[in-house]
């Protein structure tokens, strides 16, 4: 049994063997927002914050997260109010199939919270671990650039 605080809510959960935090979130806790596109840290679609650090939840052994605070995409909005990254992504056409979107929302909101005024190239480098196959990235960058200028 391990204890996790996920999006502010305490959970006690029993991961099976060396399963990943991603598997625990999805298959045991029903939090399907974090996506399972590559399960080897190459696509970023499972990105979460683990005690404030941006990680791929597919590469975190769930038992090693015991006691951690986890923020998933489900915890990014403030209730019904979208985070500005979420709102910008929808408005700018940064969402197509949306499978990469949760990871990008988590990574981009973390970037804006931790990096003052990133340039376009900074944004691109910081999000290089988040693969999107639909958009060619243009619309996502267009969504984030104005927010970066504000941050």
């Amino acid at each position: 049994m391990i204890r996790l605080t996920i999006n502010g809510v305490p959970h006690v959960v029993d991961p099976m063997g060396p399963e990943s935090l991603l598997t625990t979130l999805r298959d045991r806790l029903g939090l399907f927002g974090s996506k399972n596109a590559c399960e080897q840290g190459e696509c970023g679609s499972c990105s979460v914050l683990l005690d404030g650090r941006l990680v791929c939840s597919c590469l975190v052994m769930a038992v090693d997260a015991d006691g951690a605070a986890v923020t998933t995409v489900e915890g990014i909005a403030d209730g019904e109010t979208l985070h500005r990254v979420q709102e910008a992504m929808v408005n700018a056409g940064g969402v197509q199939c949306g499978f990469c979107t949760p990871g990008i929302v988590v990574a981009a909101s973390h970037l804006l919270a931790t990096t003052p005024s990133p340039t376009e190239t900074d944004i691109r480098e910081a999000l290089a671990g988040n693969i999107c196959r639909c958009t060619g990235y243009g619309a996502i960058v267009r969504a984030l650039e104005p927010l970066a200028a504000e941050s």
Binding site: G41, E42, G44, S47, R53, L54, V55, C56, L59, V60, A107, A126, A128, G129, N130
Partner: peptide, 8 residues
């Protein structure tokens, strides 16, 4: 890798 990999 990515920032996600480097933080771990």
């Amino acid at each position: 890798g990515s920032p996600q990999i480097r933080s771990a």
